[in-house]
Design a binder for these strands. Structure first.
Length: 806
DNA sequence: AGCACGCCGACT
DNA sequence: GTCGGCGTGCTC
């Protein structure tokens, strides 16, 4: 009885979100394994799609006629048991398709490209032959897919059976090969050959002794030529004589430059570092279950060195280690540090790698060549075997949450993997997320604290500049006289400055330039966003709406307007105010080109500029010894976003950016310009007082019923027609109201800020709950129902951990 | 997603 | 009478 393969197919819809049974042809009975990619026929016609074998069982539970697998795409599995289990859990946990989760874990190169070719099999009209097929026998359907008229004509031809569709799944995975030389004979046989050749055949003689000395070892032809001094022709001759064989050697594209020759040594740890490292390394060695560690260390407390030594501790007992960092801090400096300590054992997964590089790094991890992985969010899926340690640096970073499907939070995936592998999980931050910190508070995490800076330098002094009088005195400006004076002073002393422009929530809310008043929702205590299309201020949390104010309701000033500014404008202003200063501007515009990010930072590091002006991207991980002044031009923009995490993000950002000043000998100074000089997020950031911020913010969250006191789920419905979307969301709201626990709060439905996106109308519901045992099941059911009657073409998305509610 | 089946309006 | 519109249901 042939085995049956259970295959999850690459058709991301609700109805097909389960494995399908396929017959395994006898010729592959020995080769197929769970976790391999396959090509299978799917549906009517001759459609072929890619899929993953997720199980193999004896008789199938399906009693219809099975179709056989079309092809195996991999010689060995690309998904191991752990990843398979993880993908299944993730799909359920994030309300995503299983297939989407599988792809999320793999390099893009492994996503097969579905091709549909149209082939002529009978006489067709001259006009069709010319206009559709350009007089060829076969074309790719994709080339005409965007021209409805041609599609129609092709469909007609297909009906008449004059053309057929030929479906192919094209594997994008490309390995790079270089020529290699493999000696075929053993030592003695080479000796015999040498006796046999002509006395004057010097080249052949040298080739034979070269091959003899290889001792059967495989070498790259390029190296062989160099080492032996022989020509490629001689090696060709050797192949003909049967002395050697030319074989392709897989080459791994190596991003991040060469491996250093000399590895760095561990640094001596101070008392606090020793305590932290001691606890972590002991947990690693014990190999059992351990609570996650929350490593709370001020900027400059030497967290990185603790991480490095913890990784070394894992490697010592032959385990592997995975480290996540925010994309933006995955700088060449950082890569150098890891490569410097662990050399070729490190694989780097970075968004700016090419598809091929990414694939190669992934294969190095898969085959065990790399035992340490450093990367951004998606690196949490790195297929390391025998995982002993997972580190998430800057764990509070919102970027660890993926904002499109599958909407996973890397921290949560890390917990799953650490559980599965009995691996130690370390979450590190100077300003832990409220979620993590409160978990530490109740004992779910083990809290480790490092309060001292390694170099014993004090944290930079920080001053707050109230921009309200500045603007009323001097009109619109991004620079207070105080900040300008300090910039001029640094310029004169030949020291460098960093200016950060906070662009979060660019021009989306209205603020009074006179008193700092921000219009808030009367029901939700969250600021209203400007909705230009309808000329209203709207709360996207509860749906409240009111007209755009002309005068400030608080101080009756007319200087109420929406707030937002760009780096370009600031740079222009700066050039007028401080013409002597050399400025490097860094934002999405100037760093779009590959490598620009690094180049600009390098230039600044080489002191080719006096001022680095940029957006949030300059707040993290940069370390320039000559920077003694950091200015935050507009601390407020993040603060008044309609986002319950706004204060937290502002505090984190200010703490983060302050850490950029005074890294070396010279003391640093920080200037924060704001229209809200008394706001607690700003004053507490000034005092570097995380503890008090934590207490204050937790209190607010408690009173407003936000995370971490409540969990939140965001559900969205969209449709091309507003009435249909509205009907759908109302029906869902109804279901929720009647079924959920009384303590669960259902907010909305309300339209999204950009109610119409991509020609679709969006509505959303936010559910806040403390404990609701049936919620998950109910949501899953709602998702299933949506693919049926009345919900045609309605798109439902559910986000189990929304970062914001707008 | 992509395809077929099936039931209603305007055409060779 | 049939061609083709898209609403509905299914894919191992």
């Amino acid at each position: 009885m042939a085995k049956v393969a259970q295959v999850v197919v690459d058709v991301p819809t609700m109805q097909t979100n389960h494995p399908y049974s396929y017959e395994i042809p006898v010729k592959w009975a020995q080769t197929v394994q769970i976790g391999m990619r396959v090509v299978v026929p799917f549906g009517k016609g001759h459609r072929q799609v890619q899929g993953f074998i997720v199980a193999m069982d004896q008789p199938s539970h399906y009693d219809g006629q099975l179709r056989p697998l079309t092809a195996l795409m991999d010689p060995e599995p690309v998904v191991n048991q752990e990843m398979l289990a993880l993908s299944k859990w993730l799909a359920d946990d994030t309300y995503s398709f299983w297939i989407s989760c599988l792809y999320a874990m793999l390099p893009a190169a492994l996503k097969g490209k579905n091709k549909r070719l149209v082939r002529i099999v009978d006489e067709i009209g001259e006009q069709d032959a010319a206009e559709i097929f350009h007089n060829l026998d076969e074309i790719d359907f994709a080339t005409i897919a965007d021209q409805p008229e041609l599609v129609q004509r092709v469909t007609k031809l297909k009906k008449q059976k004059k053309v057929v569709f030929d479906y192919q799944v094209e594997d994008r995975a490309r390995k790079k090969y270089v020529a290699g030389i493999k000696p075929l004979l053993d030592f003695g046989r080479y000796e015999d050959e040498r006796q046999a050749i002509a006395k004057n055949a010097h080249a052949q003689n040298r080739l034979l002794s070269y091959l003899q000395n290889l001792n059967g070892q495989l070498v790259e032809q390029k190296d062989a030529i160099k080492a032996s001094g022989l020509s490629a022709a001689t090696f060709r001759l050797g192949e003909k004589r049967g002395w050697l064989k030319k074989v392709p050697i897989e080459e791994y594209r190596q991003p991040g430059g060469p491996i250093p020759q000399q590895l760095t040594r561990p640094l001596k740890l101070n008392q606090e570092q020793r305590v932290a490292f001691g606890a972590i390394s002991q947990a690693i060695r014990s190999g059992g279950h351990s609570k996650p560690f929350l490593l709370e260390g001020v900027t400059g407390s030497g967290k990185t060195e603790v991480y490095l030594q913890a990784i070394a501790a894992a490697l010592d007992i032959h385990k592997t280690a995975l480290m996540l960092v925010p994309e933006i801090s995955l700088t060449p400096q950082m890569v150098r540090q890891l490569r410097g300590r662990f050399g070729a054992k490190v694989a780097i997964l970075h968004s700016s790698l090419s598809q091929g590089e990414r694939y190669d790094e992934w294969r190095r991890i898969m085959n065990g060549a790399a035992q340490v992985v450093v990367g951004a969010r998606s690196a949490i899926f790195a297929p390391l075997k025998n995982l002993g340690l997972i580190i998430i640096d800057e764990e509070h970073e919102p970027n660890y949450k993926q904002e499109d499907s599958p909407r996973y939070q890397a921290r949560r995936v890390a917990e799953w993997r650490s559980h599965y592998n009995h691996a130690v999980l370390v979450l590190g931050s100077a300003t832990p997320s409220l979620e993590s910190r409160s978990r530490a508070h109740v004992g779910l995490y083990h809290l480790l604290r490092m309060k001292q800076r390694v170099n014993h330098h004090p944290l930079p002094s920080t001053e707050i500049v109230d921009m309200r009088p500045v603007v009323s005195r001097e009109g619109e400006t991004n620079f207070s006289p105080r900040l300008l004076a300090l910039l001029a002073d640094r310029l004169q002393k030949r020291e460098q400055s960093i200016l950060m422009l906070n662009r979060r929530g660019f021009s989306s809310f209205v603020m009074c330039r006179h008193c700092g008043f921000v219009l808030k929702c009367p029901n939700c205590d969250i600021s209203l966003t400007l909705h230009m299309a309808s000329h209203t201020m709207r709360c996207h949390y509860c749906g409240h709406e009111e007209p755009i104010p002309q005068v400030c309701p608080q101080c009756h000033s007319r200087k109420i307007r929406y707030y937002g500014t760009g780096t370009e404008k600031v740079a222009t202003e700066l050039a007028q105010l401080l013409p002597a200063a050399r400025v490097i501007r860094m934002d999405v515009d100037t760093t779009r080109r590959k490598g620009m990010h690094e180049r600009l930072l390098k230039e600044f590091g080489e002191q080719k500029a006096d001022i680095l002006l940029g957006t949030q991207m300059i707040a993290k991980g940069l370390d320039f010894p000559n920077v003694t002044l950091v200015g935050v031009l507009n601390a407020d923009t993040g603060l008044d976003l309609p986002d319950f995490r706004a204060s937290e993000h502002t505090f984190d950002l200010l703490a983060q950016v302050s850490g950029r000043a005074g890294r070396a000998q010279k003391p640093g100074h920080v200037v924060i310009q704001t229209f809200n000089p008394t706001n607690y997020a700003i004053t507490l950031a000034q005092q570097h007082n995380y503890e008090k911020f934590f207490a204050t913010e937790m209190n607010l969250r408690y009173r407003a019923g936000y995370p971490p006191y409540y969990y939140a789920v965001k559900l969205m419905a969209s449709h091309a027609e507003q009435s249909v979307a509205l009907r759908a969301i109302n029906q869902i709201a109804q279901q929720l109201h009647t079924n959920l626990a009384p303590s669960t709060v259902v907010l909305g439905p309300s339209p999204r800020p950009i109610a119409r996106m991509k020609r679709r109308y969006y509505y959303q519901i936010v559910i806040k709950y403390k404990k609701d045992p049936i919620l998950h099941q109910l949501l899953t059911q709602i998702l299933n129902n949506t693919q049926q009657k009345g919900f045609r073409d309605v798109q439902i998305t559910i986000d189990p951990d929304p970062q914001y509610f707008m």
